[in-house]
């Protein structure tokens, strides 16, 4: 999804306006004219000027590029699906790991993504098991990161 300068400039301008409005509610250091709102206001002004500049230049140049250009991968159902699966697997890890533990969750995440990317099932499962054990041993055991534990796999720790 590629935006041209006109559309991108408009987004930057709107972003600047939003930051400026939100910064109006921030307080100053007592007795000073500067405080929590100073930096966001400066960013908002910078953003607004940049947005106007980009839009102005795009209008002057006739904004030759289409306003919204879809990248080649967006037209491929397989690519879109793979990207969605990758994102969904991260969300799955966040939701499931505390409940069922690191080992089964990470195994599912890696194996599912490998299978989505057309790895042979046996290879995907074997590599995922190996990688999962290496990561768990390196982070969980060696570096003592409290990775979520599974009750039936406590011997790994």
């Amino acid at each position: 999804m590629k935006f041209n300068d006109l559309l991108l400039g408009l987004l930057v301008l709107l972003g600047g306006v939003a930051i400026y409005v939100s910064a109006l509610g921030f307080t100053d250091i007592p007795g000073q004219s500067y405080g929590a709102g100073t930096m966001p206001r400066a960013i908002a002004i910078f953003s607004g000027c940049l947005g106007l500049f980009m839009m102005g230049r795009a209008i002057l140049e006739g904004a030759r590029m289409p306003r919204l250009e879809l990248a080649a991968w967006v037209r491929s159902r397989r690519s879109v699906l793979s990207a969605l699966v990758a994102l969904a697997l991260i969300v799955f890890y966040i939701a499931a790991a505390p409940a069922i533990g690191f080992v089964p969750t990470s195994l599912v995440v890696m194996a599912a993504l490998m299978l989505t990317l057309r790895t042979k099932p046996l290879t995907a499962i074997a590599v995922s098991i190996l990688a999962c054990i290496v990561i768990q041993q390196a982070f969980g055991r060696l570096l003592l990161v409290p990775l979520p534990r599974s009750e039936f796999l406590t011997f790994l720790w």
Partner: peptide, 14 residues
Amino acid sequence: ARILMPIILMFCIV
């Protein structure tokens, strides 16, 4: 890459 990328993703998460 189809084997490497899922492993890298797991390293990123951890």
